[in-house]
Design a protein around this nucleic acid. Structure first.
Lengths: 331, 331
DNA sequence: CATTCTCATGGAATCGTTTCCATGACGGAA
DNA sequence: TTCCGTCATGGAAACGATTCCATGAGAATG
């Protein structure tokens, strides 16, 4: 592979001059500029990133740590973040922690070793030792989606309260009084925020305040199905079910189908926090609060770049959109 | 940040010795070993990756270029590939090409500059200039999912013929004669292989060979919906529809719903190449050929690592599983 | 006891850049 | 004409690791 030395030799200049031309320094004559660029093109020169990073003490690489890229929320977020980063000349390295603190720490070590310039972190639990170390090393960090206790990095996440309000308004419009709510873990800030917003807002929207109708799973289908069954076991028969995330709604639907049968299930309306394109094909179709995952990713990258460049970044709540697929709505 | 020099000084040894200890060379005494390790731990030393990469002329980084990480096939693949790579001490950098040759080339330049040790490539079209250059530079490369003309890198992909055979067998068992097939672009090897396998196998499975029932879209929902409408416009009324990928099936369903109404649509069975968990909730439920994206990712990484380590790798077709969700099957 | 061999060690070179510093050419001002 | 300032340039240092090579201590062998 051609090095800058080869380019300089071919152009008949010193390496210093070649470097200045290639990095766009103004301290270059038109003459050497054209000769260096020509030589570089002829040799197919591509700068050695590690060498440059070593010397400049920055890598132009961002680390993105999510719990699971298979989750559509994160894959949309990651896609948008990667595009935004690349548009600014940054590369993204992606890693999954799989909701496991040990894996998260292993990844953070790798990131540290790669000397990433900044970290986009979607936390999954409390602070871990490696994270603590990174925070102490004042690496620029932004949080995505979930907050984490004792870390005051800027947070880019969904407007959970606003999204729940949209769902509540829809439930009221549809005339539902007996609504089941399946939440997520209280230890996740998203779970807690949605749960709190629901409890705080339900009465004002004409929804029964019987807590037998409220239960929580683990944000996964199986846990949600169990929570749904617990609610049914208490003798409740809701006319609508509100699932606090996509998997939760899926699990709740499955439980209702299995327990009550397809016919009775089709009389219950589901509304979900998190939209999935397949909701349109359920019977009845499922309405949903749609997260703007791409915008969260882009805003996170922009905030992180601001921090990297010595500026400041402030937390931001990204608005949701309500997708109304109910019978009366304009299809 | 602590450097190896700091570690050596604190341990009272030369940097060479510290390096040998930290990289596990056998040429070290137990004494210096323990002192260096202690010093490293006390200082929280984490090796500078770029410096190491510069000297060793390898980065332990793999590049993964997919068309769109939001596609569940790729997000499952990427998840598994990342896990497998990390288990072998490699880091993955991910990029999306969005089915755009210019973006793909831009990404390949970034990869080249990062001096990745190997490339996992899911191609989207013909060879591009940058790809040509990379192939010439004999960077280890494996292809995922799709092949590409004129490139003889090993391919790790779905067993398309086998998957189509599973679907055909199911169609026969269900007694379908009038089956519509919505394919994908012939320019994608996956589209062509599935199409060819279907045409070659339909007669033997008792399926009508009228080509009015066959059309193709672009592997996206909208294009598939148009293809479905063209079939219906020809006056055909299939009892089953076979979509050549997930989005295609989705689009075909949407078209059938819109054109014939929910009631008539519920009389048509859909079978899909690519499984999606929501298929279970359609009415009737959609059966599907499930491809083993995680195994494709893992096999691809293993093949690539073999190439990197100077070995050889051979193409591999990963078997599919048929998910039968039809009425008679054990639910 | 002398010699050779083994092996851990220190020191230095090296990887490919960027950036600092000194130099020299050139132009403009006095 | 002389002097100063500007500015492109060449050369060298520096980034932080790995690895080569020479050295010296100690063990093993005769």
């Amino acid at each position: 592979m051609a090095t800058i030395k080869d380019v300089a030799a071919r152009a008949g200049v010193a390496v210093g001059t070649a470097s200045r031309v290639l990095s766009g320094s103004p301290q270059t004559s038109p003459d050497s500029r054209s000769r260096v660029l020509a030589a570089a093109a002829e040799l197919g020169y591509i700068a050695n990133g590690p060498a440059r990073s070593l010397r400049r003490a920055r890598t132009d690489v961002l680390g993105l740590l999510v719990s699971d890229i298979r989750n559509p929320f994160f894959s949309e977020l990651a896609h948008a973040a990667e595009q935004e980063a690349r548009a600014h000349g940054y590369t993204v390295i992606l890693a999954n922690a799989n909701e496991d603190a040990a894996q998260a720490d292993a990844v953070l070590d790798v990131f540290a070793s790669q000397r990433i310039d900044g970290l986009l972190l979607s936390p999954q639990g409390p602070k871990t030792p490696r994270l603590e170390a990174l925070l102490a090393s004042d690496l620029p960090i932004v949080l995505l989606n979930r907050s984490i206790e004792g870390v005051d990095a800027p947070l880019y996440g969904t407007d959970n309260a606003g999204g729940v309000a949209q769902a509540l308004k829809w439930l009221q419009r549809r005339g539902h009084r007996d609504v089941a709510f399946i939440g997520g873990p209280e230890t996740f800030s998203t779970g807690a925020e949605r749960h709190d917003a629901y409890l705080a807002g339900r009465e004002a929207h004409g929804i029964c305040t019987d807590d037998a109708l409220v239960d929580a799973g683990d944000f996964l289908a199986d846990g949600a199905a169990e929570a749904m069954l617990r609610i049914l076991d208490r003798g409740a028969l809701p006319t609508a079910v509100f699932g606090a995330n996509g998997q939760t709604t899926l699990g709740a639907m499955r439980a209702v189908h299995e327990r009550l049968g397809a016919e009775a299930a089709s009389l219950i309306e589901f509304v979900s926090f998190d939209d999935v394109e397949w909701f349109a094909f359920m019977s009845p179709p499922v309405s949903a609060v749609k997260n703007d995952a791409p915008e969260i990713g882009r805003a996170g990258v922009r905030g992180l770049l601001a921090l990297i460049n010595g500026g400041t970044a402030t937390s931001q709540r990204i608005a949701t959109t309500f997708i109304d697929r109910s019978a009366g709505s304009a299809a």
